[in-house]
Amino acid sequence: MKIHYLQHIAFENPGSILSWAKENQYPISATHLYRNETLPELDEFDWLIVMGGPMNIYEEESYPWLRAEKEFIKTAIERKKVVIGLCLGAQLIADIIGGRVIRNQHKEIGWFPITLCENISDYPEFSFLPSSPIVFEWHGDTFVDLPKEAILIATNEGCKNQAYIYKKRVYGFQFHLENTMTIIEDLIKNCSDEMVPERFVQSAEVITAHNDYIEQDNKWMKMFLTKLAVMYEEEEI
């Protein structure tokens, strides 16, 4: 099983996903779009992971590679690859499958609980999660008006649409379970202008005080990937 990821900016890498792939000896490759690297052929990977980033999905004038990336993700979905979108990645997928991406009422930055929807029991890949896990958020936009094939599986007070599953093998997460402390510290360093005090924006001191949340989130990400890999290899998805 070969994994490929799309990275939009230098300081937002797949974090714990990289260590999971290494631990399980899954080959993993990358396209760093901000370096204008060439996208791979679709037969070169089985899973596609689309990372986060500070740009908006519609900023194609500022980030011309977004056009080619959207077509690439669309084709990967059509070819029935496993596709996982994180934050910006989830928004890109939502736009591609017929949803919309808009400015959320609240900016969410920091550690916040999400509520899993009742239908989560239909998805064994999430069976280990508590009903209200605390996750890391850093976004101002959100996805809405998802098509009927996209099943909403998580919500919270600050942002109604937190995660979805599309056609059993495409996943969109508005939040981050993959982030390490290094990634979070780099986000704070490079995107501090976004940390304007609001209801759902925590301070840098509060955010970096929770290494325990990072460890738990990373463990959940690895558990999700492990269950998904078993389902994939047993052709259940």
Rank of each mutant, 00 (worst) to 15 (best):
H176Q: 06
V196L: 10
K168C: 01
H176A: 03
A163G: 09
T182W: 10
I184D: 01
Y171W: 14
H176S: 01
A154D: 11
M181P: 02
K168M: 05
A150K: 02
L187R: 11
I153V: 14
P147S: 11
N156S: 15
I188S: 01
N156H: 12
Y164I: 00
V196S: 08
T142G: 04
N156I: 06
F143C: 07
Y166S: 07
K148V: 10
L152I: 12
G158S: 10
Y164V: 02
N156M: 09
M195L: 14
Y171R: 03
M181S: 11
I188D: 02
G172D: 00
K148M: 08
Y166F: 15
L146E: 07
K168D: 15
D186L: 12
K168N: 15
A150D: 04
P147G: 13
N179T: 10
T182E: 15
K189T: 14
I188T: 05
I184W: 03
N190K: 11
T182F: 10
E178I: 06
E178T: 03
P197N: 05
K189C: 05
E157D: 15
F173E: 02
S192C: 07
I183D: 03
D145M: 07
G172L: 01
K189A: 13
G172R: 06
R169A: 08
V196M: 08
E194S: 09
L152H: 08
M195T: 04
L146F: 10
L187N: 11
R169L: 12
T155H: 12
T182Q: 14
K148I: 10
D141Y: 06
G158A: 11
Y171H: 10
T155L: 03
E185I: 03
V170F: 02
F175M: 05
V196Q: 14
P147R: 13
V144D: 13
F143G: 01
F175W: 07
V196E: 13
M181E: 10
K168R: 13
N156E: 13
T142D: 05
H176D: 02
C159F: 05
A154H: 04
Q174V: 02
C191N: 11
T155K: 13
D193K: 14
T155S: 15
Y164P: 06
I184P: 03
A150H: 05
A150Q: 00
K148L: 12
L152K: 14
I165E: 04
C191S: 11
Y171E: 00
E149H: 11
D145K: 14
I153N: 08
R169W: 12
D141S: 14
H176M: 00
E157M: 07
L152S: 15
R169P: 03
G172Y: 05
A154C: 09
D193Y: 14
I188E: 02
C159H: 08
E178M: 11
D193Q: 14
D193T: 12
T155N: 12
F143S: 05
P197H: 09
I184G: 04
S192N: 13
E194A: 07
F175C: 01
F173D: 04
E157G: 06
P147E: 09
K168P: 00
E149S: 14
E194Q: 08
E185V: 01
E185M: 09
P147K: 12
E198D: 15
F173N: 01
K160M: 07
L152T: 10
I188L: 15
F173I: 05
D145T: 04
I165C: 04
Y164N: 00
A150V: 03
N179R: 04
I165G: 00
Y166E: 00
N190F: 12
